[in-house]
Amino acid sequence: MMSAAHTLADLRRSLAEAALRSAPAARGRVSFGPAGLDEVLGGGLVRAALHEVYAPGSPDIAAATGFAVGLAIRAAGRRPILWVRQDYLDSETGALHPPGLSELGLDPARVLLVRARDAEGVLRAGAEAARCGALGAALIEPWGDPRLFDLTATRRLALAAEGSGVATLLLRASASQSPSAARTRWLVQALPSRALEANAPGDPAFRIRLLRQRGGLSECEWRVEWSRDRQCFAERPGFAERPGYPERPALPDKPDQTRHSPDVAPLPRPLVSLPADGQVAAGEAGPRRRAG
C-alpha cells in the first residue's frame, strides 16, 4: 500500500485540502444584501461562526425557517447544505417541502437532510456537519428547549464552525432564549408582505431583530424581504403598510434603523434575469405575474 504513487497521491490530496481550507470562500463574511445590515455587522455575518435564529412564538416558526434558508443560501454559494432536523418538528411545523425550498431559491438537490430522533442526535449530527469544511452551510434544528444545547455545546459548535469555515445556523424556532456561544442571535417574525395584483401575498417578508452580537452593536431591527431572483435580502423601504393594518404589539419598536440602501449586491448566479435598474424597491411584480 505504501507505494510511491500512494505517497504522491496523499501529498496531492493534502495540498488540495489545505487549499480548500484557506480558500477565500471558506472565510470572510456573508453579506445580506442591504448595506445597512451589513454595516452594523461589520460587512456581513461572519461565515465561520455559529448563528442563532429564534422565533417569538410557534406561529412564526415558518418565517424563522425561511430567514435561515435565506442566510444559508447566501452563505453556501454552490456547496451543499446539510440540514439536521428533529423528527418531532414534522408534526409540529410540517415536513420540509422541497418545492418550497426551490421556490426560495435553494435547489433541493443540494440539501442533505439528517433526521434525528432526539436532541442528542441533532447535536451530534450538527457537530459532525459543523466540522466538515466542504459544506456550504449547516442548519441545525432541534425541537423545543433541550437542556443539551447549553453554553458548552454551543461553544463546541462555534469552535467547530470557526475551524472548518462552515456557516452554522442553529434554528431554535420553538425555544426560549438561553445563554449560548453563538456569534449573533436573531429574532425573526413574519411581516406582512407587499401585496401584488389582486391583493395576493408577495415575496416573503420578515421583521428581523439582532438581539445579540459578540463584540458588536446590540439590538437593532430591520424589515427585510427575501428576493429569490436576486438571492438576497432587501430592506423594505418606506414600509407602505396597507391602511388599517394593525401594528404588531409583540415587539416594542426601537428607533427605526431603516436606512435607504440603493445598492444591494446580488449573488453571482447565472440564468437569472435581473431587472435592469437593479432597484428592489422598483422591482414590483414583473410583467409575467399572473393574477389569481
Binding site: A95, L101, A200
Partner: peptide
Amino acid sequence: RWPAPQPHDPPTRPLQLFD
C-alpha cells in the same frame, strides 16, 4: 428535475408541508 420557479413570482409552494 425540480420545476424552476417563475421569475418575479412570489413562492407558490410552502416551505413546510403538513402530512
